[in-house]
Nucleic acid binder design. Sequence first.
DNA 1: CGACTTTGACCTGCGC
DNA 2: GCGCAGGTCAAAGTCG
Length: 300
Amino acid sequence: MSEEFKDLYYHQPFHDDDRNGENSSTYTQNLQMFDPSSYMSFGEFFHGSNSHDTLTRAFGLTPSTSEVPAGVDGGGGGGDLVGGSETPATPNSSISSSSTEAAGDEDSNKSKKEKESVEGENSSKKEAKAKKKGEKKKQREPRFAFKTKSEVDQLEDGYRWRKYGQKAVKNSPYPSYYRCTTQKCLVKKRVERSYQDPSIVITTYEGQHNHLVPTTLRGNVAGMFPSSMLTPPMPLQGTSFPANLLQLHQMTNDHLYNYGSVNNVYGQQNLTTLEQPQTQFPEYGLLQDMIPSFFPKQEP
DNA sequence: CGACTTTGACCTGCGC
DNA sequence: GCGCAGGTCAAAGTCG
């Protein structure tokens, strides 16, 4: 995956100067810290607005449908919060960044086995393999990563997630893999703690939810956020959102410095980023890529 | 008993 | 072609 992540997170409007050839990992470089806790929950963040506009604007982007990546619809976008059943969103959590990549494929792995078993043993692996090879290069759902300062791994986002795997990978001791439990929803997310700063949780969403936030969760979001925050899956609260976001961005300067090291989590990111916080909101390009696909599809 | 987590095995893509 | 790394599966265990 390294590659896609590279792509994914590699957009860096701010420091072009580069990272000495190292590629391994610039993964979270662009992530910026902001503190959503002061104004909204993840759920709200993702669902608070049902239009791309809101978020887009929030990030200072010009709303434009044309920016929606082609492959996006395949899946889902990701928003989410961790829904887990239990862990409440940490109060002190502060989200941070984002990034994404468009890609499309998706049902690749999963279907792999499932399909195989369904189709019959014969056509199995080899065939599947061949098939795959024939197909064009595997593509992935757009991804969006958040860096959050939190004590709990799972950020409450209103959705329910089922953990389906955990495995140590380079630069990340034990990332956990979660899938949205809603039927037909292929959204996945990876949750990992920052290698250098364990207090930082990096959550990467992949795909778009094709359903609304479940309201009757066991771990019920209702208990975790002020009602004002829960209102929305549908309601558009666009106006306040952007403002908050911007605000948030302003406060990020400090965060950038403070968490600079965090950005290195995945590797050898140079300090440039930290040294140039002024580019603060810079990830236009990046956001443009991700935002659209970021929202859940509001399909009836 | 159903939903969820844990965890080792397996699969796939990619770089060398 | 080989080996590594990332990602997923699925059986078994845990929890409510």
